[in-house]
């Protein structure tokens, strides 16, 4: 059967068997190998992609079922080759991964959370990633990454010069404190909202 999928903003067509999963189609037909097969029965979440913005198991969905939906894969998050999204960068900052196999799914689930909730509580983050099993990290540094990304995104949207409640002394540029918050971090996002290096 012919399917037309809008993947990472581009309409792509393929001829697939009706029984072919969205996961296999993404990997084999479109060479998007960031989604991984972990259990192929919908538990581990390594195959997670976003379908119209919501995390879905691509191993439990046939490609033909995805026809007409907006699919976002991990390959669609980085703004440009060699660059990282704020969330991806936050995972690097906190080392929210080890082997990397669950990471694309973990980041997409977290991305969906941050799209709808700018200030998620720890419990909301735990809930959002609870469908993604990580065998390496014990989740601690993943949760830190999502918290850190949320904080950065909030600051990125703050008006220039405004003092956020959790940011230090009055009159200090929030951006000037960004680097102080994390040791030794060089964050692309840190320079995004005032246009200059610090």
């Amino acid at each position: 059967m012919k399917v037309a999928l809008r993947i990472n903003g581009t309409l792509r067509e393929a001829e697939v068997e009706p029984r072919k999963t969205l996961l296999d189609t993404l990997r084999e037909n479109f060479h998007l190998t960031g989604a991984h097969a972990g259990c192929e029965h919908g538990v581990c979440g390594a195959c997670t992609v976003l379908v119209d913005g919501a995390p879905m198991r691509s191993c439990l969905m046939f490609a033909v079922q995805a026809d007409g939906y907006e699919i976002t894969t991990i390959e669609g998050l980085a703004p440009a080759p060699g660059e990282l999204s704020v969330l991806q960068d936050a995972f690097c900052e906190t080392h929210g991964l080890q082997c990397g196999f669950c990471t694309p799914g973990m980041i997409l689930s977290s991305h969906a959370l941050l799209e709808r909730e700018g200030s998620p509580s720890r419990q909301e983050i735990v809930e959002a990633i609870s469908g993604n099993i990580c065998r390496c990290t014990g989740y601690g540094q993943i949760i830190e990454a999502v918290e850190f990304a949320a904080e950065r995104l909030r600051k990125a949207n703050a008006p220039r010069g405004s003092a956020l409640p959790h940011v230090g002394a009055p009159g200090t540029e929030p951006s000037a404190q960004d680097d102080a918050a994390i040791e030794h971090g060089i964050l692309e996002a840190a320079t995004a909202h005032d246009g200059g290096p610090k």
Binding site: T33, E75, L84, F91, C92, L97, F101, T103, H184, G185
Partner: peptide, 13 residues
């Protein structure tokens, strides 16, 4: 930072 992380967060393992 852990240098390996960059390739994994973009699904480029």
């Amino acid at each position: 930072r852990v240098r390996e992380d960059r390739r994994f967060v973009v699904g480029n393992g």
